[in-house]
């Protein structure tokens, strides 16, 4: 095959269900021989934050934000029927019973398949997140121009 077809995904949402949709499409595309990049921005950054926490940010407002909005793949909630965590717990249980990979496993799998995980620098700056706030699978921090550079060459671009 000549140049690989490209897929670029903007992962804006940090909900469990939406993250799942993003990773299903990303891993499938990688299986189909496509070059895949996922740009995480805003609430989407929660998906790739370290589960262990330990985010050091400057200023009271950022500290408060990162305290309330802790993130990590294991802390994502359903966009509907969260019901104080009960709905999310039930969905996770159903996924486990169906032998379905968790978001954590999907991130590892996507990384192994060569999917590029990129965090948006602007939201990182505003929210007080540094490269060290994210898990090791995250390749780099980049801005909108880099995303558009990738998107222009992509046959498929998704905003989730």
């Amino acid at each position: 095959m000549a140049e690989k077809e490209k897929l670029t995904i903007v992962m804006f949402s940090g909900n469990l269900d939406q993250a799942l949709a993003g990773f299903i499409i990303a891993t499938t595309a990688a299986s189909m021989g496509m070059a895949v990049s996922i740009f995480f921005t805003f609430w989407g950054l929660n998906i790739i934050k370290k589960n262990e926490g330990g985010i050091k940010s400057q200023g009271l407002m950022r500290k408060m934000l990162n305290f309330m909005n802790r993130g990590g793949s294991k802390r994502l909630k359903l966009s509907r029927f969260n019901m104080l965590g009960l709905g999310t717990a039930m969905m996770k249980r159903l996924m486990k019973e169906a032998n379905y990979p968790s978001i954590d496993e999907f991130i590892t799998m996507a990384h192994q398949m060569g999917v590029k995980l990129i965090a948006c620098t602007t939201t990182c700056g505003i929210m007080g997140l540094e490269e060290g706030s994210f898990r090791s699978e995250v390749e780099s921090l980049a801005g909108a121009a880099y995303f558009l550079g990738e998107a222009r060459e992509s046959k498929t671009t998704l905003f989730i």
Partner: peptide, 14 residues
């Protein structure tokens, strides 16, 4: 058997 999309495709590619 017992696996849902996209796992059969991911495993096939592997």
């Amino acid at each position: 058997v017992g696996l849902y999309c996209p796992m059969p495709i991911v495993k096939t590619a592997e």
